[in-house]
Amino acid sequence: MKFDHDVIRELLPEYLKGALSEEVRKELEFHLNDCSACRDELSLLSELINIEAPDPGELFWNTLPQKVRKAVDEEKAARHPAVRKVSGLFGMNFSLRSLLYKQLPAAAVAAALFFIVITFTKKTETNNLDPLFKDPLSTALLEYDDLTEEDVPLITESSEVEELYLNEEGSSGYSYYKEVASLSPEEINGFFKELKREQVKGG
């Protein structure tokens, strides 16, 4: 394998690092023996490599990682002023930011659910009560648990009650309304006194 100058010069940094294969290294050294221009370039690169960067000291190396960490934390805090690192609480380390990010969505969901439940409950109660206010005596809403099956028709459907108390004259030809209307004031007073004495209420 034969290399020209350009290829040799591209390989010189790898040669200095010792990163070439045995075969390539031998070929390169063979070329260098005959080529002063490439030898000069190798010499220059060797001079370059020999220039050491001055050591800034152990203090710099030991503190740089912490400095970078601190600088990152400060930049984060500057971007989010409300977020501060809270340390040492019961031996734990956590940041308000992570607390916000992790807990806030859960709290928001809980609040939304609570709101929905409250709204739904209130609406349901109102819906149940509305008809009662509109029609308090509706038979569809009133409960008759304390009445027997026989009582209910008497009250709600009895034509007899309607005839006796509401109609001027029922199908039987008799009416309490008509009878009371025919009484004189003295007879009415006597009637109420009699009712009071017998402790009869209503009617």
Partner: peptide, 11 residues
């Protein structure tokens, strides 16, 4: 982990 990366490549 970040500090370890800094230590590894700082020089």
């Amino acid at each position: 982990a970040m500090e370890r990366l800094v230590m590894k490549y700082q020089k």
